[in-house]
Amino acid sequence: MTSWIVFRREIAQFLTTPFAYVIGAAVLLLTGILFNRDLNISFSTKPADPALVPSILSFAMVFFAPLLTMRMFAEERREGTMELLLTAPVRELSIVLGKFLGAWAYFTLLLLFTGIYQIILVNITAPDLGHALSAYIGIWLYGGATLTVGMVFSALTENQIVAAFLGMVALMLLWLADQAGQLFSNIDVAIIFRTMSLQGHFSTSFASGLMRAEDVAFFAGIIAVMLFITAQILESQRWHG
């Protein structure tokens, strides 16, 4: 319930400040350019890739997720509203959850906007919509997970730029872990790293049209653990005033 109230404020914040629109326009511009490029390449030679836009977003989120979350706690601290939030009869986890749901809802909205590409494809060819849906569900969960990683760093540092930078570095590492096999000659080590990577639960399953329970569990688990850690960080900061 209290999460719902925080969520409403958060989504209102996204929708009333130009920042979110700039990010949204940038994402749409990026996906739009790559979508057209792919259309030109595959024109009359191969079927459309239904997972194209989700796959682009899977990389784009490495940079966009920290931008979306960097102000989340840093701004509250700068304005002092954090003190009010933490003295309201609300648990940290509720605040964190509400903020996360707000950012995730914004991301969902963005995903719905990219649905235009599927509409275009339906009009010019017959794309595998099941495959596309799987990729979209995958990127939806994936995006949620990247947002929570960004939130941890937003809670951790006072500085927005530092939060965004650290978030990007962390997500980049999580993204690159997919390529661990190229780095580690020991396959068991490589597998562990790949299991930890975000791509490892997206590129070969959701993005290929296969939904696996363990991948859902992975993203849900990342979301749960990161939100919990964020709440713990907020609570621990009480001790230091």
Partner: peptide
Amino acid sequence: NVGYLPERVPVYPDM
């Protein structure tokens, strides 16, 4: 049961 006004009034400028 507490209403709290910190020293520096905390606000959301965009609200």
